[in-house]
Design a protein around this nucleic acid. Structure first.
Lengths: 155, 155
DNA sequence: TTTCAAAACTTGATAAGGTCAACAATTGTT
DNA sequence: AACAATTGTTGACCTTATCAAGTTTTGAAA
């Protein structure tokens, strides 16, 4: 007679190799962060991806869409809809590039500056709240560094 | 005359707050891991999500679809297509649950055992390769622990 | 026993992201 | 002048995720 484990509670489940795999742990942690981002920024109508675009344009005014896409590791075709949305919200604008009529230069609007400052305020708050499960600031710095190394590691 | 930063190289880009945000760093690291998973397991026709299902069933034979979904943090309805695919590959099978005719009990097939062992071999290899950018085993353990804390942290 | 709420699986609709190939306009190079 | 490369864009496609129903079955309440 075989075991009936169908009703085993979640806490008794053996995750096997998943528990030792960085890829799985990274995914679970990131899913949690995205969920929290959604809760905190729900009324702002902005996603983590759009927030990242604003963050890049905010600190690097005049970049082309392709340059922003490369910075974020996205396809440049995906940037079209993103910039369309942000331009539709009057948060940034496309200006014709001065020396290349193929491309646009991206700039924040005044409303975009206010909006982004507010968004950073919210995201920083929940980031700090999440970071409370880390021992101290040095552990967070260490973690940020380790994550960057993993993000750039090639086989 | 405004700066022409449209051609700024990627390495000169200022990431601003993104560089301090765990959410962004987690996403970049996880994207890299998923990309590497795809490279290594390309011919196996399996995704990280399907691998996770196999890992759970492998160590917890007889679980229902819903139990697996809860363990992985997925919706029950998403498990249907996943199990369909894995059953179509003869890697696992649905058996009628002994005490509940509403649910199935999931079990690995013989082929599933061999397939999963092979997949774990590959994934372990690239996981270890990726972990070489960490100082030592203790740093990896520390990182796994920190990621688990972040995955379970609530606001 | 009868009734009713809840659970397990499934389906279908929907939405969001990501990838990819093409296209026109423009640029840079040969 | 001819050719290749780049930029923004579009459209197709795929994968996930989510959500609301609907069916069958279970378990508890009246």
């Amino acid at each position: 007679m075989q075991d009936d484990r169908s009703k085993k509670s979640e806490q008794e489940i053996d995750f096997g190799v998943l528990g030792e795999f960085l890829g799985y742990r990274l995914r679970r942690a990131q899913m949690n962060f995205f969920a929290k981002f959604g809760e905190v920024c729900e009324d702002l109508g902005i996603s983590p991806g759009l927030f990242a675009v604003l963050a890049i344009v905010d600190r690097n005014p005049g970049l082309t869409q392709t340059a922003v896409a490369q910075a974020l590791g996205n396809d440049r075709s995906a940037m079209v809809a993103a910039v369309d949305k942000l331009e539709g919200k009057n948060l940034l604008e496309r200006r014709p590039a001065v020396n290349d009529r193929r491309s646009y230069a991206l700039f924040m609007t005044e409303e975009g500056n206010r909006f982004f400052a507010n968004a950073v305020e919210r995201v920083s708050r929940y980031e700090n709240e999440m970071a409370k499960c880390l021992k101290d600031d040095s552990e967070k710095e260490w973690l940020l560094d380790a994550l960057e190394r993993l993000a750039n590691k090639s086989l």
